[in-house]
Nucleic acid binder design. Structure first.
Length: 138
DNA sequence: CGCCTTTGACCCGCGC
DNA sequence: GCGCGGGTCAAAGGCG
């Protein structure tokens, strides 16, 4: 159902007009926002949470708090409760919101792929009624 | 007020 | 059956 647009060597980015995320990557920029954003803030955030040998500590307020807050489709709710997702504090605004086709893409994830040393970014079209997703990797 | 980004955790599928 | 990899979620803070 979900239209996934894999960005690969042979798959063009949607309508790809002129400047695309790939272009940015090709330029050697890992973080897409590195071009014109305030990624520095993200670094501050990192420092704020890295205390345990580089491992992020989950705020105790998240451990076993507010029951029923998570989605029900989770099997082990209790387990999840303890492993509550930690919180992040940062703010990064990127002008790359509006890309090639003029659609608005929101980044919802980033993963480091084995094959590539570069991280793969996942974007979701936030346009009204647009359920398109796409991956961007170098 | 809404939207966006970051990033680890979580979950599922596939391969061995 | 287990492990690994890949994909998605969720939360907080700031700006327009």
């Amino acid at each position: 159902m979900t239209n996934i647009i894999p960005i690969s060597h042979h798959t063009p980015i949607s309508s790809s007009s002129s400047l695309s995320l790939i272009d940015v990557y090709k330029n050697g920029l890992i973080g897409i926002n590195t071009t014109n954003t305030k990624t520095e803030l993200g670094m501050e955030m990192d420092m704020d949470f890295q205390h345990d040998n580089g491992k992020r500590l989950a705020p105790n307020e998240y451990v076993g708090s507010s029951s029923g807050g998570i989605k029900e489709n989770k099997k082990d709710n209790k387990e999840k409760m303890k492993l509550r997702r930690h919180r992040y504090a940062f703010h990064t605004r990127s002008q790359v919101d509006i890309l090639d086709d003029g659609y608005r893409w929101r980044k919802y994830g980033q993963k480091a792929v084995k094959n590539n040393k570069f991280p793969r970014s996942y974007y979701r079209c936030t346009h009204g009624g647009c359920n398109v997703k796409k991956q961007v990797q170098r």
